[in-house]
Design a protein around this nucleic acid. Structure first.
Length: 803
RNA sequence: GCGCGCUUAGCUCAGCGGUAGAGCAUCACCUUGACAUGGUGGGGGUCAGUGGUUCGAUCCCACUAGCGCGCACCA
């Protein structure tokens, strides 16, 4: 329920009518059906096998649920006396307590030290048993003593050796991992660890311990209980997985399923090629029960129901049948999800429509648990892959790169970012119901430090935009609250931009027919077109970070920073005609409306809210933005003349702003400006865009310097060959201006030195593509002009200081 | 042991053969009629190290160092 609520609050647009639960009757029937079919084909079998046993949860686990970690232990070298009394063999072990389950001692067949002993016997200390000495390639002669005790019922490798040599399986443990009645009375009932102490002590007393050395060993623990697992011989159900894995491997090899990023296919192949049979039975009370029934003799029958079993095997109603108490591994039913949810085994319309799906979006941590098994089961039971693309996103970690977990107390509930949470409530949330209550003070301290005032409310859109931005190809994503704030601010920016647009369009004529479109109008459309090219590419490539960036940059740095400001020059001008104002109003509302649709998948709530007020003004119909078409670059041609002219306008404005900024001249202060060296195009651009330049740069109308007229002492901005002069009298500190010039001069000289060295290299000129060489040559020419201008300017300013 | 990933500005991360980018942080200026959750401008990087390929390497290759992950595992 909580997860469903989170999904709704996060604006997931899923079909809630199809909400189902794995243990719903329909899905349970699918589970049973699959089990029965696999059993009938011989792909599910039951048997006494060595499995990973969790002695705390008292259930079998699959290999995937085992988390191994290196821990410190000891390697005990034990003396096993030879039966003929001629001495002893030394075996090395990390598990001395399992000696009661030994069935042999093994040496390598080529090991000269022990070859002569193969076939003889040793006496197992503390017991009255004798063990054969066998030869097996499994033994590494260089490790330990080169002799290994073989305990087939308590070690996976020893099990294999035992199978090869026909050794007996001696189970010495109970389900609690205590020693059972198969061991000498003195050890019975002891847990394995106390038992180990006692065995060591007793062997020591008998002088049967050669030596003990410290040893690092990998200890398998249950991923839920953290208990040390025991390989234990129990009756379990297994899936014979290789016949299912082969087609699943092929489907990915053949490209019928594509992993994104592609490197995850290797992870998949690595596991699938070495896959082992899947233990699917669990000794838990929660889950799908195994559809197998036992008669009084312990013989089992698999079927869809007890009635079917009785009918199929002619078992009288009076004869007792007992259903298997075990349940299935939860991933067994999960593996069927793509088709169990669509009504399989019936050939439903839903199955036809929604299987396979286009994409599975998931985390890398469940590629084996879930993705691989869905592929195997999907292919097996429908003959088709369950999905075409597997998009693997990274795992959100905390600000220190730690995986979020309840026990670490570093979990952040997305709802607490959306709604905000007080420190007290957050502390409460993180410290109640802890498995390890002793962690509470540390968690409290860390939480207080990180969120001294709790978490502010940021809203769903900010969180979603932030996650999109974080969705790079990397597999760990550090969560960073300032990143959410960044997008909260973005939403605020968008909101205010929309206010501006509405304020200027509501109650005015914004129809495009017969309107005049300014340079800025044409330019912003062209930029929108380019932005949509980028969002389309981002969605296609599953690069949602690129989508978020493209929309962020367009909204903030093109639409707000430039276009809205340029639009003011038209809308607030007395000289601009109605047709021009109409063109700008239309472009404002139209661009905003398309931008909202472009942003909607990432920020569903704010875009809907604004769109409802914008749509009619933009002449767009529809009930909800959710059903509006995503805007397409194909509908908006790029404008190849507006872009360069606008770049010139921006260059002009930025040049003057830089002078003002560095000289600490308030932007509001109108400055007189002269231009020099203007080309025909510069003059044309200048004339056409005076209204933009004066407003955005905060200058009076720039006047061209007449030929022959002496330039006043001025700060200079360069735009190609054009020199923009800001007279310094009374405004600019000449020393500061010299610093500024020197800085730019140094940079230009550095660039020039690098480039000319490159161009003097004959190899470069001969081998590099001509356009690269031409570009560098042009750049060198520009730099030379710039340096000449800067040098001349520096001289002029110097004279001012020291005439 | 096998496989994979990472190392770019103080922080979090893009870029990945042809003049180093963003956000945050930082400094200066700005109560400008959408927005101070803001505006304008600035400072800040020998792109982990070494070698190779190339006219040219942050980008490709090899090795080294550090960090991390997965799988397997020597009793």
């Amino acid at each position: 329920g909580m997860i469903a609520k989170q999904m709704r609050r996060l604006g997931a647009s899923v079909d809630w009518n199809r909400d189902v639960f794995t243990m719903d009757p329909a899905l349970s029937r699918t589970v049973t059906e699959v089990f029965v079919r696999l059993y009938q084909e011989g792909l599910i079998y039951r048997g006494k096998r060595l499995v990973n046993w969790d002695p705390v949860l008292k259930t079998a686990l699959s290999d995937l649920e085992v988390a191994s970690a290196e821990e410190d232990g000891s390697l005990w070298h034990l003396r096993y006396p030879l039966s003929d009394g001629s001495g002893h063999l030394v075996v090395a072990t990390t598990r001395p307590e399992t000696m009661f389950g030994d069935a042999a001692v093994a040496v390598h067949p080529d090991d000269k030290r022990y070859q002569h002993l193969v076939g003889q016997k040793v006496r197992l200390p503390l017991t009255d048993r004798e063990l054969p000495i066998i030869a097996d390639e499994y033994v590494d002669p260089k490790f330990g003593s080169g002799c290994v005790k073989i305990t087939p019922a308590h070690d996976f490798n020893d099990y294999e050796v035992g199978q090869r040599h026909g050794l007996p399986l001696l189970n010495i443990m109970t389900l609690d991992a205590a020693l059972n009645d198969a061991v000498p009375p003195a050890y019975r009932g002891l847990d394995r660890l106390p038992a180990r102490q006692k065995v060591i002590a007793d062997l020591e007393a008998l002088g049967l311990i050669e030596r003990i050395e410290p040893h690092k060993l990998t200890v398998p623990r249950g991923d839920r209980s953290n208990a040390v697992l025991e390989p234990l011989l129990t009756d379990q159900w297994f899936v014979d997985i290789k016949p299912l894995a082969a087609p699943a491997i092929h489907a990915v090899e053949a490209g019928r399923i594509r992993f994104v990023p592609a490197s995850y296919a290797n992870v998949y192949f690595e596991w699938m090629n070495k896959i082992k049979d899947w233990c699917i039975s669990r000794q838990l009370w929660w889950g799908h029960r195994i559809p197998a029934w036992y008669d009084a003799d312990g013989k089992w029958y698999v079927g869809r129901s007890e009635a079917e079993v009785r009918a199929a095997h002619g078992i009288a109603a009076a004869a007792p049948l007992r259903q298997d108490d075990d349940v299935l591994d939860t991933w067994f039913s999960s593996a069927l999800w793509p088709f169990s949810t669509q009504g399989w085994p019936q050939h439903t319309a839903a199955l036809k429509a929604y299987y396979p799906t286009a994409v599975l979006v998931t985390g890398f941590d469940i590629i084996f648990f879930w993705v691989a098994r869905m592929i195997m089961m999907g292919l097996k039971f429908t003959g088709e892959v369950p999905f075409r693309d597997v998009y693997i996103h990274g795992l959100i970690r905390d600000q220190d790169g730690q995986k979020m977990s309840k026990s670490k107390g570093n979990v952040i509930d997305p709802m607490d970012i959306v709604d905000g949470i007080s420190l007290d409530a957050l502390l409460d949330k993180r410290t109640t119901g802890l498995m390890q209550p002793q962690m509470k003070p540390a968690i409290e301290k860390a939480t207080r430090k990180q969120f001294p005032e709790g978490i502010a409310p940021y809203g769903t859109d900010a969180l979603r935009l932030c996650f999109a931005k974080l969705a790079t190809q990397s597999r760990d994503l550090r969560f960073d609250m300032p990143r959410v704030a960044e997008y909260r601010n973005f939403c605020n920016k968008l909101w205010n931009a929309a206010r501006f647009v509405l304020m200027n369009v509501e109650g005015h004529d914004a129809t495009p027919q017969g309107a005049e479109f300014s340079l800025a109008d044409r330019w912003i459309r062209s930029r929108l077109s380019d932005t949509l090219v980028r969002t389309e590419a981002g969605f296609t490539e599953y690069r949602f970070d690129n989508v978020a960036n493209a929309l962020y940059d367009f909204t903030w740095h093109e639409f707000c920073d430039w276009y809205v400001e340029l639009a003011k020059a038209v809308l607030q001008s007395d000289s601009a005609g109605e047709a021009a104002k109409r063109g700008t109003r239309f472009t404002l509302i139209d661009t905003l409306e398309q931008l909202l649709r472009a942003l909607h998948p990432l920020a569903p709530f704010i875009t809907e809210e604004i769109w409802q007020r914008v749509k009619s003004l933009a002449g767009v119909g529809g009930q909800t933005i959710m059903h509006a078409r995503y805007p397409s670059a194909a509908d908006i041609p790029a404008d190849s003349s507006a872009e360069p002219e606008m770049r010139w306008v921006m260059g002009f404005i930025l040049g003057i702003r830089q002078i003002k900024g560095e000289m600490d001249i308030p932007m509001g202060r109108k400055l007189p400006v002269l231009v020099q060296n203007a080309s025909a195009q510069d003059q044309e651009y200048l004339q056409r865009n005076l209204h933009y330049l004066t407003r955005m740069a905060g200058v009076e109308a720039p006047t061209p310097l007449r030929s022959g007229e002496a330039a006043p002492i001025a700060a200079v901005a360069l735009l190609g060959n054009l020199e923009i002069l800001v007279p310094m009298a009374g405004l600019i500190d000449p020393t500061a201006e010299l610093d500024r010039l020197a800085k730019r001069h140094k940079k230009a000289e550095g660039d020039l030195a690098k480039l000319s060295a490159k161009l003097h290299n004959g190899q470069f000129v001969r081998n590099a593509p001509p356009e690269v060489v031409a570009k560098d040559q042009q750049r060198v020419a520009e730099l030379r002009t710039e340096i000449a201008q800067l040098t001349a300017q520096t001289e002029r300013v110097k004279k001012l200081i020291d005439p």
